[in-house]
Write a protein that binds this DNA or RNA. Sequence first.
DNA 1: GTGAAAGCGCTAACAC
DNA 2: GTGTTAGCGCTTTCAC
Lengths: 339, 339
Amino acid sequence: MSVARENKPPVIADVARLAGVSVPTVSRVLTGAAKVSPEKQKRVQDAIAELHFRPSAAARALVSRQPRIIAVLAGNTSRYGYAETIRGIEESARADGYLVTITVVESAEHDDVDTAVSLVLDQPIAGIIVLKFDPPGVAALHKIPTDIPTVSISGVRENLVPQAVLAEADAAREMTDYLLDLGHRTVHHVRVPPSRREDGRTTGWRAALLARDAPVPEISDAGWDPESGRAIGRELATRPEVTAVFCGNDEIAMGVIRGLTEGGRAVPADVSVAGFDDHPLAAMWSPPLTTVRQDFAGLGTRAYGLLTKVVARETVRKYSSERPSLVVRESTAAPRGDR
Amino acid sequence: MSVARENKPPVIADVARLAGVSVPTVSRVLTGAAKVSPEKQKRVQDAIAELHFRPSAAARALVSRQPRIIAVLAGNTSRYGYAETIRGIEESARADGYLVTITVVESAEHDDVDTAVSLVLDQPIAGIIVLKFDPPGVAALHKIPTDIPTVSISGVRENLVPQAVLAEADAAREMTDYLLDLGHRTVHHVRVPPSRREDGRTTGWRAALLARDAPVPEISDAGWDPESGRAIGRELATRPEVTAVFCGNDEIAMGVIRGLTEGGRAVPADVSVAGFDDHPLAAMWSPPLTTVRQDFAGLGTRAYGLLTKVVARETVRKYSSERPSLVVRESTAAPRGDR
DNA sequence: GTGAAAGCGCTAACAC
DNA sequence: GTGTTAGCGCTTTCAC
């Protein structure tokens, strides 16, 4: 009989026995850490195949002190930007032989943050990437012990840990300038839940307005659900002075357009609406949505790259992406009076 | 000095020393497995806090043989249905103290499948959930050794492993019947990449047509990107006999509507278009999309529940969800001649 | 209740 | 090259 232990998964000792070599020799062919004679190599290989042996990841992680898992902490996983960023992280990690875990931080409340962070800390992980796009993400970052390799992803620079950033503020400013250049007196802003007091999109929008001496209208706060944008759109439809709206993301922009339309205002004839992100459906929308293209997957990739350096204890510095780019489609136009 | 080992994370022995107890006693207060006197309990607790001690997950996984991680294998992670299903899995797992990993199976090619499955198998995991929505998912499922606790999620029943299913075929049939009842002579079908020769949506559509002796038009194959739906929509726009289109998912339906519109056909005046999934943007679309609501998150939750039973070696049987429900909105109407 | 001793399955160190 | 000896940091007997 070749199966040494009834019903239990084979261990390295079983392989060694079957191949007629010592345990470390099996380990050597497994890791390739040292030379093994071709003959024994083959015997070991055969034994492994025969027993369907797979080394225990738990034992390896214990002895080598290098778990092959990285954790992602995020306030959300299914909205477009989040999902794409995670996709970018996973893709790079997989190519590198790392598995990635995702855990969502339901809210910035102590209990939720603690649950999520503890869950991650209680597993054998190599490092953590936190998506600091919203308050839960920010709260989570602050709860992570400083001795754990950590990287954050954000729309604004900060110095807590190395981070991959998107130059959101610059892009928002560019978008606002574009709208102003079209002839709009000012630009209204519908914000998605910000990560701090104010996120990059809002900052850039305000800066552009102030730089041109345009009035700074009160901000409308939306949630993550497009439905919340619709309600805001309906409200905006009742205010004739609103001719241009810059939204925190495309999904909200789509809701806003819907609400505006329901309220009797045509887009872009009566009011121009712009989004942010370049959601896959933005081009399908009617009218096709003017927006800002963000390379979320690339952001994830860069964050992963940063993390591997931190894990390897190399010195790293803050990273910065190329600026997101303006994509002009048909949901924006010059105001009525100007045409 | 209370820190026993310079620069290294504290281990259980450090805690024991500081608290003046034995290592097993510390372990006992950690796990709560056995009684410890209140006094020592407190000393241990204090030592843990002082040292910021966290037990090594790797060591625990090794000795207890019960990793607290479950893996999800999927052909995709960011499209709506996938992302929502994963969200459901993660939510239940987190509540249960399990971490979830995600790994993408890029294609059904041997190399991609092998990379993904090996990655997962090389880590300390308790079990696997595979999203069998597409060919990569199906291929991955077949590569998983049978001794690993595994559950699949799918739109059609099969018997390989326990699975959480959505009664897609029934819902598709209901949708097709609804369209036929409106007075359409037949219903065209735009398919998303199927998991097997034919998935539940296509099967249900065909069954409904056959049952009513309606002609069964040739199927149009779309990809996952809405853009591919748009191309199909343009093509469909050139064929006057097309008056009703049932699409494999909402994103494709939105693309099809766009293409149809660009081709000069009005929706629903000239042609009715229905989707599948009830994407968050479906209600925002113009016209608001008629679709089928699927409870993806619930599906994920049920799959997780199944997996925990398999892990615990309880006997389980196939699960089945309530049937998805029809959501009639404004993208469908009676054909022109009937009005 | 509590400590000593014995592993979990693997890799690292060290001879030969 | 290869085997022997030691652990990795915990939990689990098993005495007392």
